[in-house]
Design a protein around this nucleic acid. Structure first.
Length: 350
DNA sequence: AAATCAAACAACCGCGGGAAG
DNA sequence: ACTTCCCGCGGTTGTTTGATT
């Protein structure tokens, strides 16, 4: 159908806004509200089209806009929501208070997308890139890491499919995630996974959990990683810590959904990154509590876990020499990895 | 110091959906 | 039911800023 242009082109200014224009726009909206955007420019004495005014207001001048660097939490939310929703920036923005869709979109395009690409993860599908795996320049460390990431992802997908089938019997919260309005995606995902977790009777992965906790302690102890030889004892590590009070129905942390994946997955390939990131976020006490809460018989094969985690180990060993930035970088990247893994594989879901 | 390049950010464009007439 | 208008969205382009040569 015929459609009129959004504004008359003649005599209307384009390009960057001046402080005077900003002042006029803010003053007018403060006094009258924006009303009809089309009619606003004339009333406010601006030589702009209504569309330009609306954009300037919603993306820049609105008083409830938070500007500046994105926090790690915000980055995590963006990645997770993008895996679920795709490029639906306005929908993503509703879960990031005080951030605009435009800002999120720009941040994704200029930062997050590149980082995922560098990691060999397709920023569109949030899956490992096959070409990145096959076109490596030899058996270098990066390609090895990518290979292992793909391996983890592959096993994760299987686990998710299984988990999804089982979860149909329980809560449908994950399917209704974005119909629930303002509640944060992290909390909803966590609650969904929590119920899955509590419904589980399997504890066969706990030996591996314990093993990983041992591995983690090797990394975090003074001197850093001491080599795989020391990990053989990790399966019997003493998990002494204060009495656990962990309550999965109330504690909402962004990685608990991954624990739900573990309970039904014979090979917990998502373990390295998810436990690392969880520990990074919540501390070793959290890890100890979690393990104790979920505790069952320990009869694991640490060697099998070791094999799965070689690529991850390379990263960690490299980082132990990273100086003051080590902790920050480690936490950051593990969180990103964790969130990539935490995202449903079939996106968008609506 | 100047030129060049890349990254980051702001703004524009065109389309589609929904409301109103 | 159809047309027109308005708004919001996502993709894209343009501008600014900072780093590098």
């Amino acid at each position: 159908m015929g459609r009129s242009p959004c504004c008359e082109k003649m005599g209307l200014k384009k390009g960057p806004w001046t402080p005077e224009e900003d002042q006029k726009l803010m003053a007018y909206i403060k006094e009258h509200g924006h009303g009809s955007w089309r009619a606003l420019p004339a009333k406010a004495g601006l030589q702009r089209c209504g569309k330009s005014c609306r954009l300037r207001w919603t993306n820049y001048l609105r008083p409830d806009i938070k500007r500046g660097k994105f926090s790690l939490q915000e980055e995590q939310t963006i990645i997770q929501l993008h895996a679920l929703l795709g490029n639906r920036w306005s929908a993503i923005a509703t879960h990031l208070p005080k951030r605009t869709d435009n800002e999120i979109k720009n941040y994704w395009n200029t930062h997050l997308k590149k980082r995922l690409t560098k990691m060999g993860i397709d920023p569109v599908t949030h899956k490992p890139k096959t070409d990145a795996l096959s076109s490596g320049d030899g058996p270098n460390k990066d390609s090895a890491n990518l290979s292992h990431m793909a391996q983890w992802e592959s096993a994760r997908l299987e686990a998710e499919a299984r988990s999804a089938r089982e979860s149909k019997l329980g809560t449908a919260a994950s399917n209704n995630l974005f119909q629930l309005g303002s509640t944060s995606a992290h909390h909803l995902l966590a609650k969904t996974a929590s119920s899955q977790l509590l419904n589980s009777s399997s504890t066969q992965c706990l030996d591996v959990l314990k093993a990983w906790q041992g591995v983690w302690s090797k990394f975090t102890q003074p001197g850093g990683f001491q080599g795989w030889d020391n990990i053989s004892s990790a399966g019997t590590l003493d998990l002494e810590s204060p009495t656990s009070t962990l309550n999965f129905s109330e504690v909402a942390f962004p990685t608990v959904e991954n624990l739900a994946v573990l309970e039904c997955n014979g090979i917990p390939s998502t373990l390295p990154e998810l436990l690392t990131s969880s520990t990074a976020m919540h501390g070793d006490a959290w890890m100890a509590d979690t393990l104790r809460t979920m505790s069952g018989s320990a009869s694991g094969n640490v060697a099998a876990l070791s094999s799965l985690m070689e690529g991850f180990t390379d990263i960690m060993v490299d980082n132990t020499e990273g100086g003051d930035d080590y902790e920050e970088n480690k936490n950051y990247w593990n969180s990103i990895l964790n969130l990539v893994n935490a995202s449903p594989s079939n996106s968008p879901v609506f």
